[in-house]
């Protein structure tokens, strides 16, 4: 039982790339959909974005952030297996001709989604604009992992200007809108940025579809952990999303609910790090 790891590569100071054999998922995955994986018998069910799905394998970008992702980085190597990969989950992105399509990313999940989404959008005849935002030089990925090959326009930003433009995707999006170059924005990543993006594009009336990240358990609509308020109604991100019209999301509640288990997450992480130290791994 389990799913074999076929590739693993570091991307930056905080993120890495992993490819896993999961033919059942790879066969039917479409951009916008996600998977839920469990690293081992004691593991948690964790939703993950997908970078690509081909030849029976799925690629993922993963942040070393909590116990699951630490285990994936420190304990699992090519040839090893992870317990479970379920999916594809959620609704695919609607691929059609929009005109000028922006995809903006400032965290690992969205960096992963950028490539496949813009690839599909380009094939559908859109003019594609990729914006990858990172905090600083150490966090920037090698270019071949980014969406350059499928983007008509391609931007990297860093907060300190150490690579690419100084600033954030919000700055680039604003500029592009003012140049009248944006018909629709797709985005994902940090929830705080998405809230600001919604305010920005809302003020210009630009359609904006974003991936809402929420804590999930099953990922199939069974538990309601990922519920949000959308246009005044309760929606489940896993089943009704994960992409939503950014202008209809109640962002303050989304941001609060995302922090529900921070205390437990920190506790488990510290415990795990202590174990790694004991073993001399770090």
């Amino acid at each position: 039982m389990g799913y074999k790891i076929t590739k693993k590569e570091n991307l930056s100071a905080i993120d890495f790339f992993m490819e896993v054999e999961a033919p059942h998922v790879a066969k039917s995955w479409k951009p916008g959909q996600f998977v839920v994986l469990i690293v081992d018998e004691k593991g948690e069910r964790v939703p993950m974005s997908v970078y690509y799905a081909e030849d029976g394998k799925i690629g993922m970008f993963i942040r070393r952030h909590g116990v699951t992702t630490f285990k994936l980085w420190y304990e699992k190597n090519v040839g090893d297996k992870i317990l479970s990969v379920a999916g594809p989950l959620g609704k695919p992105i609607e691929v059609k001709h929009y005109g000028n399509v922006v995809f903006a990313a400032d965290a690992v999940c969205a960096q992963a989604e950028c490539y496949a989404t813009l690839k599909a959008m380009k094939e559908a005849g859109n003019y594609t604009i990729a914006i990858h935002s990172f905090e600083n030089r150490d966090n920037v990925y090698p270019e071949r992992f980014l969406a350059k090959s499928v983007a008509d326009e391609f931007y990297i930003t860093t907060e300190d200007g150490s690579v690419g433009r100084k600033g954030h995707y919000l700055d680039v999006v604003k500029e592009l809108i003012e140049q009248d170059k944006v018909d629709i924005v797709f985005a994902g990543g940090k929830l705080g940025s998405l809230k600001k993006l919604a305010e920005l594009t809302g003020s210009y009336g630009i359609p904006t579809i974003v991936t809402v990240r929420q804590i999930m358990v099953d990922g199939t609509g069974m538990c309601g952990s990922c519920r949000i308020l959308y246009d005044g109604e309760v929606k489940f991100v896993c089943r009704d999303g994960p992409m939503f019209d950014a202008h209809k999301v109640d962002w303050d509640d989304v941001i609060k609910r995302d922090a529900r288990f921070v205390e437990q997450q920190n506790l488990a992480r510290e415990r795990y790090i202590a174990k790694l130290r004991e073993k001399g791994v770090i």
């Binding site: 004691k42 948690e44 069974m222 288990f261 506790l267 488990a268």
Partner: peptide, 23 residues
Amino acid sequence: NEFLTRVNLMKAYEFPEYDTPIT
């Protein structure tokens, strides 16, 4: 469902030995 799934299926009552939390 969320509560019971965390507890029964994911063994959150053994957190942090098991990775899934419950508060």
